[in-house]
């Protein structure tokens, strides 16, 4: 009996692994930054290029960094969700305008609305590299001590906002700074 059951058992185990593998998204690479200090940047604002914003300026508050570009199709898809979320005023959302022409970026925000406290211009993509950005859009959540606590890869959906971001942000805001 065992002679026949053993191969069947092995077969079922392999099928199990393959089945789980089918549901995995290889595009989602875990960020090495989670639990670590947010990478430094010091970048000009899109609308006021002579004003710069640095990571250190954000200390003491929970904040979001949403990486976007006018050439990115999925950013368009998530933009409504991000805008609606920003309107609740729960948390300041900063934009990282990744490898984009400032004029295109401004036009995009004019047409679709501007949910960002400020958009920071990363024209050559160096800040993107420092943050490990490999596919726009990406959204980082930082706590009061400037530690990266979560990263959403790909478009933010209403479900992600309700089930993942809001509970996390409320928890982080209750933490000591």
């Amino acid at each position: 009996m065992i002679r026949y059951l053993l191969p069947l058992g092995i077969f079922i185990v392999i099928v199990g692994f393959l089945f789980v593998g089918l549901g995995m998204d290889p595009k989602i690479v875990p960020s090495p930054f989670i639990g670590k200090p947010a990478p430094e940047f010091n970048l000009p604002k899109l609308y006021k290029p002579d004003e710069r914003v640095a990571t250190a300026d954000m200390k003491g508050q929970v904040w979001l960094l949403n990486v976007w570009a006018s050439w990115c199709v999925s950013c368009r898809a998530e933009h409504q969700v991000v805008t609606r979320f920003a309107k609740t005023g729960l948390v300041p959302i900063y934009g990282l305008n990744y490898k984009d022409e400032p004029e295109d970026a401004k036009g995009w925000l004019r047409a679709l609305g501007n949910p960002y406290v400020a958009s920071l211009v990363d024209y050559d993509g160096n800040a993107g590299i420092d943050w490990g950005v490999y596919g726009v859009p990406e959204t980082f959540v930082m706590d009061k001590n400037g530690i990266v606590r979560d990263k959403v890869i790909g478009p933010v959906t209403e479900e992600i906002v309700q089930d993942r971001l809001i509970p996390l942000i409320e928890k982080l805001q209750a933490e000591e700074g």
Binding site: V29, P32, P39
Partner: peptide
């Protein structure tokens, strides 16, 4: 590179 993008 690993510090930014992980072992992947």
């Amino acid at each position: 590179m690993v510090a930014r993008y992980g072992d992947f």
